[in-house]
Computed example of a mutant assay.
Amino acid sequence: MTWATGKHALITGAGTGIGAGAARALAAAGARVSLLGRRPEPLQAVAAQTGGRAIPCDVTDPEAQARAFAEARDAFGPLDIVILNAGIGDSRPFLRTGRETWNAIIATNLTALFDGAQLALPDLQAAGKRLIIVASVAGLRGGAMAAPYVASKHGAVGLTRSLALEFARTGLTVNAICPSFVDTPMVDDSAERIAGATGKSVEEARALLARTNGNGRLITVGEVTHAIMQLCHSDASGTNGACVTIDGGTSA
């Protein structure tokens, strides 16, 4: 028996990248996993690998997210671990950023966290329960050419710290994961935008992003998953309100 046996973990943005990595790791540790995401095909693939339940859901639709949480509970019972990971990014000059871009990023990266936390918290107010918000190092410092994204991630960090304080005496821990550029489809999208704007190749753009990390390379999904698993572990009850940076030393 492993430490997560019998626990129910719900992960948003679980079809690819960090969410999929966390789902695989938690399932390997014995957890039953509910997988939320917009695209059914990647979710089904992760469900097949983990024995989890794929629940297609656009987290920017509060009613859809509420239905998804209800379906997860019907399948596996009350929640023990919730990882709010769904997110989108964009990069462009502020004065060329339209309100529709701002609205979309805030809706996915911040408002959906509010909705998800409110849906999760009735189950999580007990010793050993875990709420993890996947934020970003962009939530801890400024960043040019990405104002909506940076603002949304600052909000994610603020929400994490506020919930950690408000619910500390229930036994719940609330922590944020703050990675820099991770080798995921989101970074692939960023590299393509940079390539389109600069004339560089996609590989050159990826290398440019990698050099912004302290270790000069992209962070791996496995490295982020390792940090998530440490915070989820039953021995991590003393870590609450933390913002765990995974950036290869940039923040040192």
Rank of each mutant, 00 (worst) to 15 (best):
L110R: 00
A151W: 02
L172R: 02
S91G: 04
Y149M: 14
T101V: 15
G128I: 11
V150P: 01
S91P: 02
K153F: 03
Y149W: 11
G142P: 03
A126N: 09
K153W: 05
R169W: 10
A156R: 05
S162L: 13
A144D: 08
E166L: 11
V137K: 13
L165I: 14
I133A: 04
T111C: 05
R169N: 13
G98A: 09
G139H: 05
G143S: 14
F114T: 03
F94Y: 09
S91F: 06
R130V: 08
A135Q: 07
A146T: 11
L121G: 05
V137G: 06
L95Y: 06
L110W: 05
F94V: 13
G143M: 05
Q125N: 07
P122D: 10
T101R: 09
D115H: 12
F114S: 04
G171L: 11
L113T: 07
M145V: 08
F114A: 06
N109D: 13
R130L: 05
F94C: 11
I132K: 03
L113S: 10
N103A: 15
G143W: 02
G142T: 04
N103D: 15
A104I: 02
Q125G: 06
G158K: 01
T173R: 14
L131S: 01
G139C: 13
G98N: 03
F114I: 03
S162F: 09
G116S: 12
I105L: 12
K129E: 00
A164Q: 08
G155I: 03
A135S: 15
T108D: 04
T160Q: 09
G116P: 04
A144W: 02
A112I: 01
R141T: 12
P93L: 15
L172P: 00
N103C: 12
P148Q: 10
L131I: 02
S152H: 08
L124D: 00
R92V: 06
G155K: 03
